[in-house]
Design a protein around this nucleic acid. Structure first.
Lengths: 350, 350
DNA sequence: TGCGACCGTAAAAGCGGTTTGACGATCCGG
DNA sequence: CCGGATCGTCAAACCGCTTTTACGGTCGCA
């Protein structure tokens, strides 16, 4: 009743295990007649090679890994992750390679997870949520585990890296707002130790120069709301806010509206990442689509090349596109009336 | 330079491999002194047991699988999936079990994926997107692979099943609308061969009886828009529409608004699944949260029990909650003016 | 003091594949 | 017609861990 093994197939075909193996792998020539017998036997027995045995013998798991250190709640509301995974799976599906996913809560668990990957769970990993000076870069190099970094890592590394130009869309967005007469343009960034948050924030600062009005959020709706309240309470409040993701932008919009500001007439708002619902909001939200699926595909292809023995390499993928929508489509207001934050938010900022 | 093995550890500790193994597994008592030496040696060598070797010898992968047959594009915009995975990982994180994910495009690939899971990639699987009379149920049973079904499967099965009451929230929603005076309540369902779509649709039909106005969509924005157009063009058009997910509801709302209807004054709209943005739309969308993360946790716990040798069992999880918001919060309109569909949609329905 | 029970470790046999070295058979050219 | 190259298969050695069997040493108890 238990699964047939390669030996059963070999016996049924009247050959040895080695012949069966070679018939499938092609590592040695096998005569057509023998091959046919082997395949027929395998078919009859419904033999499926054990992937654990194969992984052990061939020293390759036929799987790639992703380990994520995140609060599951954040994962659940993240628009990037599922799209990225979809892309990964797209290029994986063609090969017969699986994706091993591990979500962990602590640094220790993360190290163990990567070690487990290196110890046979996966042939390589793709590294997300890259930090500037990320400890995982030397760590993975030390493990000797092929890895591709997603994001513009700036330090020394012998790992592949899939880079995206986060700066260009930010510059374009600023230009777009300037054309409409905005001069007080604020930016609510993501955590600045993430390379992509940092890149966006830096591009913003360079674009607006001395007029920079920067706040560091954490990508959650709560921080979007709180920082918007903060900005709108300034004496010389911004007339436009660039948020580092759509979640914060939406929360910010809804706060502004609740305080009586019209978007975009009194306040222009733009997000980042182009959540699939953003086009359906009122007003539709200007955003930047970043094609996570495409990056998933590219990163995976690169990783598979690394695993196959290719030398690590940087690849740039040009995947950002401005989605200009109504939330930024109005001339800048002539005078910007200041807004006092809702009482409960005051406290939040003590 | 290559990874140390259990033999290296054994040699360093002056014992045999078996002792090292037992020291960790506890399958045999090992004296404290020996254990200490073993652990010290392992530590010094930075030994991490090979998971492929372990999987082969112990006939257990320490991983569970999910195989999904979906268009990656759908995956990317699905709100259920990431939240569910987050839940799965939550209960997995406590053990050192990994999740193996495989997204496939065809029935054949799906069978191969499940076979690979059974052949050592995973110790069990959780089955999503359950159909009525799903071929995977007998197939998995035949494979002898522990599995838990997510959804109210009605056929014969020796597999565990995590059930949710989809009917109650639909009934409540209908009651809620009736209280506001609605008598023409339509339902845009998901594909009716999915058990959850079917359950929702059936609950709807039972609740409204002979006044049922049912359309079958496919969970995409496109179908939400098209079916809304269809319904609003009826002579006696509905004054309220229940959609089987938020994506369709949002697309439907935006269509209705574009045709000059106010939501909720002229048309009440409710969704399902409670996308994290739904509360931020204008108007905020009434929906039903279904706590996918919780179901992920429960399903995983159940699967791990099955894998450990427990008998398959059904578990009911009560995880739905009505989120009543503005999109349904108005009295039903006295007279419902009929809307003609936008021209391009006419064609779509030939 | 003697014997069985028990404890802790060693030794070895797998788990189900892959890979390599060896070898008989066939083929070829000189 | 013979020697070497090539082809196709076999046999056996792993891969790194788990698990079972065996066994010497202790201990408890009569």
């Amino acid at each position: 009743m238990s699964r047939p093994t390669i030996s059963d197939v070999a016996r049924a075909a009247g050959v040895t295990k080695a012949t069966v193996s070679h018939a499938y792998s092609g590592h040695r020539p096998i005569s057509a007649a023998t091959k046919a017998r082997v395949f027929a036997a395998a078919d009859a027995l419904r033999w499926v090679p054990s992937s654990s045995a194969r992984a052990l013998a061939a020293r390759r798991a036929n799987a790639i890994g992703v380990v994520l250190r995140r609060d599951p709640a954040i994962l659940a509301s993240d628009t990037f992750f599922p799209a990225f995974i979809a892309g990964v799976e797209q290029t994986l599906a063609e090969r017969e390679v699986a994706l091993v996913l591990q979500v962990v809560g602590s640094r220790g668990a993360e190290e163990r997870a990567y070690q487990a990957m290196a110890a046979g769970r996966a042939d390589g990993v793709v590294v997300l949520d890259l930090h500037r000076a990320d400890w995982r870069v030397p760590f993975l190099a030390g493990l000797g585990l092929p890895a591709v970094l997603l994001g513009a890592y700036e330090g020394e590394t012998r790992l592949s890296c899939v880079r995206t130009d986060d700066a260009a869309p930010v510059r374009d967005l600023v230009a777009h707002l300037r054309e409409r007469g905005h001069t007080r343009i604020a930016h609510v960034a993501g955590p600045l130790d993430y390379v992509h948050s940092y890149a966006r924030a830096r591009a913003y600062v360079r674009a607006v120069g001395s007029r920079a009005l920067l706040r560091e959020g954490d990508f959650t709706a709560g921080s979007g709301r709180a920082l918007t309240a903060d900005l709108l309470a300034l004496r010389d409040r911004p007339t436009a806010i660039l948020f580092a993701n759509d979640t914060m932008a939406i929360a910010g919009t809804s706060y502004a509206q609740s305080r009586g500001l019209r978007v975009p007439e009194d306040l222009a708002v733009a997000g980042f990442d182009d959540d699939h619902l953003s086009a359906h909001l009122s007003p539709p939200l200007t955003s930047v689509s970043t094609d996570p699926a495409r990056r998933g595909r590219v990163a995976t292809a690169r990783l598979l090349a690394d695993v196959a023995g290719d030398d690590p390499r940087d690849v740039a993928v040009d995947c950002t596109a401005l989605r200009l929508r109504a939330s930024t489509d109005a001339p800048a207001p002539a005078t910007a009336r200041r807004t006092t934050p809702a009482p409960e938010l005051e406290e939040e900022f003590r």
